[in-house]
Amino acid sequence: MLDDLFPILADPDFQKPGSGLMSFPAYVYVYPPDEEYAFREALPQLQERLRRPNVGQNSLAVNIYDALVEHLEEKTLGGRPLLDRILEQEEQDPEKVDRQVKRHARSEEFVEQVASRFSAFAQEEGGLDRSYVFVHGWGEVHPYLRASQFLDLMEPHLRGYKVVLFYPGTYDNGEFRLFGELSSGNVYRASCLNERLEA
């Protein structure tokens, strides 16, 4: 899995942060939801292949769900991690907790935290180029954050690197569907890498 994507990411022209979608360097790669475990094994292997001397790319992979959990652990309320309070309230008032988590997942504070992590990685000195940030975990973070919302919120921050969202679902007629069923909203500004593979 992901073997078909490697030639695109290894292409020196595509690696340049300024090539392709210069004003909005975001891409989506769609894979079948039932291949989630195969994807999780394949992503580190793809990163390792990109690090080889003939390609020379060090990439960052971020599970967006894990990033949200870390954010809720770091944020405190009354001296306690917000995540602890959320877990305590979950059984008593699940709707309130749902609203609260959605608010934090779509907050400027969370997006800036994620964006600064991406930017710090891209600017880090080292022997390898750092053109790619891979973001996955969209099935896990649903329904708190959709890929389209994330890209809209990230737009001011996408500079100096390319973001590739790994999306468990389908793409048809310009529409991404999570698990092949749930519309992700309008992500028309992101390019579907699967279309490049079929061309």
Rank of each mutant, 00 (worst) to 15 (best):
D84F: 02
V101S: 03
A38K: 13
L82W: 10
Q47Y: 00
Q57R: 08
R52C: 09
G56R: 06
Q89R: 15
K75T: 14
E48N: 11
G79D: 06
L77K: 07
L60F: 12
Q57A: 11
Y65T: 09
G56V: 04
Q92G: 02
E41H: 06
G78P: 00
P53L: 02
Q47S: 03
Q92E: 13
L43Q: 12
R49M: 15
H71T: 09
V69M: 03
S59V: 08
Y65I: 10
I64P: 12
L60P: 08
E74T: 13
E70A: 09
E70N: 13
R49G: 09
F39R: 10
Q89P: 01
V62H: 09
K102R: 11
A61Q: 11
R52Q: 15
L43H: 05
L68E: 01
E95M: 14
Q92A: 10
R103D: 11
P81I: 05
L77V: 11
I64Q: 10
A38F: 04
E88Q: 07
R80M: 04
R40F: 08
H104T: 03
V97W: 10
V55G: 03
D66E: 15
L43W: 06
L43E: 05
R103C: 04
Q47D: 09
F39W: 09
D98Y: 09
R80T: 05
V101N: 05
L82V: 06
V69K: 03
E91A: 14
E41G: 07
L43V: 15
R80L: 11
D93V: 05
D66L: 11
D84N: 07
R99M: 12
V97R: 13
R40M: 05
A67V: 09
D98G: 01
H104P: 03
L68V: 02
E95A: 14
P94F: 01
Q89F: 00
A61K: 14
N63L: 10
P44H: 04
E90R: 15
P94K: 06
D93Y: 11
E91V: 14
E88W: 05
R51Q: 14
V101Q: 04
L82N: 00
E88G: 01
L87E: 06
V62A: 04
Q89I: 01
E91T: 14
E91P: 09
L77N: 04
R52F: 07
R40D: 02
R49I: 07
I86E: 06
R99I: 02
L50H: 05
L50A: 14
Y65N: 12
R103T: 06
A42V: 00
E41A: 11
A38W: 06
